[in-house]
């Protein structure tokens, strides 16, 4: 049977009904149409479904949608505000950190969670903070550069 679910996503509140077995990722993508959050593996390894829940990065494929009841969720669609790109988004463009783009949203969310906790990370800390997100195109090189660049911009 379905259960009521109140989700606060990107500062909008949704009242839904979902099955207990549904994961947060599928609800975001299929019920809310927020397909910026990607499906890549469903085993919690690729990180393409990473969202920020109550300030923490989590893999939305490994969370029951009902466990997110009442929580504040930020997806890639909520990263820019009033049409203004987040510094991470700007840096990903400027530093050419995007290739196929399928890992990009999850990567951005992990990077945001990292910078929220550690505004001034070293290269090693960025590599460590992103290792839960797989990218098959870039070798992570320009992604790490972009995160360091964004940290600098935010710091200014």
């Amino acid at each position: 049977m379905k259960y009521p679910l109140k989700l606060h996503v990107n500062q909008r509140t949704y009242n839904l009904e979902v099955y207990p077995s549904q994961n947060l990722r599928d609800v975001l993508r299929e019920e809310l149409g927020l397909t910026g959050t990607k499906e890549g593996c469903s085993t919690g390894n690729c990180g393409a479904c990473t969202v920020i829940m109550n300030g923490m990065s989590v893999k939305s494929c490994l969370i029951l949608a009902l466990q997110a009841d009442g929580k504040e969720i930020l997806t890639v669609e909520g990263l820019s505000t009033n049409g203004q790109l987040h510094p991470l988004q700007e840096s990903f463009i400027d530093k050419q950190a995007v290739q196929c783009g399928y890992c990009t949203p999850g990567m951005l969310m992990s990077a945001k969670a990292l910078l929220d906790q550690n505004p001034n990370p070293t290269e090693e800390e960025v590599r460590d903070g992103l290792h839960g997100n797989i990218c098959r195109c870039t070798g992570y090189v320009k992604i790490v550069e972009a995160v360091l660049d964004a940290a600098e911009k935010i710091g200014q």
Partner: peptide, 13 residues
């Protein structure tokens, strides 16, 4: 800068 980057960083691609 890449033609597709803006769409991809905003999750709209």
């Amino acid at each position: 800068k890449r033609y597709d980057a803006l769409e991809k960083v905003t999750g709209k691609a």
